[in-house]
Design a protein around this nucleic acid. Structure first.
Length: 137
DNA sequence: GCCAACGTTGGC
DNA sequence: GCCAACGTTGGC
């Protein structure tokens, strides 16, 4: 069981829109980076991912679940990249801001802090537990 | 809106 | 296959 973190600009696709899709979920398309692609491919059905809002908010707002493993991204004309389907799993009671993450020494190694540009990242079990706690879950 | 960090492209 | 130029992301 691996844990992940996916990023979205709320102006493009927000948590609320994801929630509105319900159990059916939505294709997580638009990844055009090979490191992120590798992470997408490694995702297994049923695994969980933090849902992070970049630019606006800069906070983790909830948890999504992978409901379909990697397949070719229909929005990619070059046919090199893949996407997965995810659905909203659980909202945080309180969102965990980037500021709060940076203020927590145990989270200093998070990819979110170290590789801020990577849009699909792995999260360690320790980080997962702590961030869930900070989010009120 | 600026700029640093980083990924990608293309000429050699 | 290196590396300079360029484009993009995302925090501030």
């Amino acid at each position: 069981m691996s844990y992940w973190l996916v990023k979205s600009e709320p102006s493009v696709w927000s948590w609320d829109q994801q929630v509105a899709k319900g159990a059916k979920g939505e294709a997580w398309t638009g990844v055009r980076n090979y490191t992120a692609r590798q992470n997408l491919v490694a995702m297994k059905k049923g695994e969980l991912a933090f849902y992070y809002h970049s630019n606006e908010g800069k906070e983790i707002v909830g948890i999504a679940e992978i409901i379909k493993e990697a397949y070719p991204d229909p929005t990619d004309k070059t046919e090199k990249f893949v996407c997965v389907d995810i659905k909203a799993h659980k909202a945080f009671k309180t969102s965990v801001t980037l500021v709060a993450i940076k203020a927590e020494p145990k989270l200093a190694e998070m990819a979110l802090v170290k590789q801020s540009r990577l849009s699909v990242q792995p999260v360690t079990p320790e980080e997962w537990k702590l961030v869930c706690k900070m989010g009120g879950l």
